[in-house]
Write a protein that binds this DNA or RNA. Structure first.
Length: 108
DNA sequence: CGGTTGACTGTTT
DNA sequence: TAAACAGCCAACC
């Protein structure tokens, strides 16, 4: 058995993000909830921020509750948009994603 | 120990 | 539809 790690919350977050399938997106709050960390949306953002760009974790499939990419450098934002579009996620006017259509439904 | 910060979110203007 | 506000809570200093 492995002793509890102080990073266990982050590990659950990463595992949940990793479960989001290509072509769909999840919100920060949704990831937190699925990871068993209700009301910790900001912690999800913090965890993703620690991730190296080359990580295998699909960080780009996480957007905010408005269906938009959350602020960071303009460059990372363009990369996120490009990678989502490459999987078939459509952007509407003002950089918005239709969550009814592309939002992840846990269990799929 | 206490104030500040922020890859957030729901409600109210 | 969008901007302001208020609530949120772990990490940081």
């Amino acid at each position: 058995m492995r002793p509890p790690s102080p990073d266990s919350a982050y590990e659950r977050i990463y595992a949940t993000v990793d479960a989001v399938p290509p072509g769909s997106v999840a919100t920060y709050g949704q990831i937190a909830l699925e990871a068993g960390l209700p009301r910790r949306a900001r912690l999800v953002g913090r965890a993703l921020r620690e991730l190296p760009g080359a990580s295998a974790i699909p960080w780009f499939r996480v957007v905010n509750a408005s269906g938009r990419i959350s602020a960071r450098g303009a460059q990372a934002m363009r990369e996120q948009r490009r990678r989502l579009q490459a999987e078939g996620v459509r952007f509407e006017a003002r950089g918005r994603i239709d969550l009814e259509r592309f939002g992840w439904i846990p269990g799929d």
